[in-house]
Design a protein around this nucleic acid. Structure first.
Lengths: 219, 219
DNA sequence: ACCAACCTGACAGGTTCCTGAAGCTCGCGG
DNA sequence: CCGCGAGCTTCAGGAACCTGTCAGGTTGGT
């Protein structure tokens, strides 16, 4: 499951991110609302964990915005005890659940699991894309029935495409997704990884849009 | 046999867990229904022990839910004497047996054995995986016909793989499974145990996905 | 034809993993 | 009370593999 964590507290954020990862989900962590917007433009998430007190704006407004846009991604609000009114407002604004800080990490796991179950019909969905059978949960891919091994980076990249099938993704967007902000890249790394993906998955899996970026090819 | 215990009373839960473990089964113990759902999503169980009075909902509803889902895992209900009506409702909802609190632990052992026997066509189901014959009930493994001895940790680890064949499991996930939360590990213990498992069971039994984790290899 | 953008084989440095061996804990028997 | 052994964890050196970089070739647009 793909989860976007929006939380500016480094300590809490780290703990939450590690817990989610330990549960076997993939996490992107941002500390600002504008970064959250960017992330959501690049990848589709199955769940948002939204802190209501952030440096660059009120989380409630952000939530209302994405709901107005027609986005129905499940949202769990993280809120402090003295923000009960916010919490109610949050549920009204379209949140699915809330957690009061400080919360137990197992509590978090439980809520995530519950939301996940509510929104995913079958437990192990297999995506078929052309000659590829992709099982996101177990992280395995078969090409014409034969298993294909992807490395961690290759998965991260392919995952970005799968999250937005058919959508054009610029190299900058992909870099942001692969390299947790700060570690800057100064070469054609994305091109190289795309090349490696094509070699493993087939040349037509990822299409080049000259000067603009890449997109997942049609199945 | 893998058993999931759903019980919020710490004293009773501890006693039951220890008894089951003493009987040679592996137990996971949760105190809430949503945690139970999560556990069942992560691992397959051979038996559920379900307390009907839990903090986050009625056990009956939970039971009905998993039955509606088509799950036929045997369920034994744990109920207090003054909840006879619940008990009847429970059997109607798809429970296989019940125990009235307070119950004798030997009684528990007997019921577990009975349910287990009733539901496993053959008394000792043997899983065949490549050159391995695995008898979960008696915790014995034969490799090419020759018996192989596993230590406690090795069993726990191998069990984690057997519960989710083919699924990628991160080292963190495996640590969480082997070391009841809290006892943190700070070294390459998992790697070492994987190494020992491979030596005993064959090099191809567990596959490494560099940077991501391990998975049970194909048979 | 020219130029920019892109592709891809090769390679080196770094990370991750493997594994033998040493240290540790705990229970048991003497 | 001490020694012993089995199993578990830690450590360390080396092997295996990943991945960012580069360079030379290819493609596509104008």
């Amino acid at each position: 499951m793909r989860i976007l964590l929006i939380e500016d507290d480094i300590v809490l954020g780290t703990a939450v991110r590690d817990q989610i990862a330990a549960d076997g989900h993939s996490v992107d962590w941002v500390t600002r609302l504008d970064a959250a917007g960017d992330a959501m433009a690049v990848a589709a998430y199955d769940l948002l964990l939204l802190d209501l007190m952030l440096p660059d704006g009120r989380g409630i407004g952000f939530l209302k915005t994405i709901r107005n846009r027609g986005d129905v991604t499940p949202v769990i609000i993280l809120t402090a005890l003295d923000q009960i009114s916010d919490r109610i407002e949050g549920l009204n604004a379209g949140a699915d659940d809330y957690l009061v800080k400080p919360f137990d990490l197992s509590e978090l796991t439980a809520r995530i699991g519950s939301v996940a179950r509510r929104y995913s019909g079958n437990p192990n969905p297999i995506i078929t894309h052309g000659a590829l059978d992709i099982d996101l949960a177990s992280r395995s891919i078969h090409r014409n029935g034969k298993p294909v091994q992807l490395t961690a980076r290759e998965w991260a990249l392919f995952d970005a495409f799968l999250a937005r099938p058919g959508q054009l993704l610029s190299k900058t967007q992909l870099e942001d997704k692969l390299y947790a902000h700060g570690a800057e890249i100064e070469s054609n790394t994305i091109e190289v990884h795309v090349s490696r993906l094509r070699k493993k998955l087939g040349a037509d899996v990822i299409q080049t849009e000259r000067g603009m970026g890449y997109r997942l090819g049609p199945s």
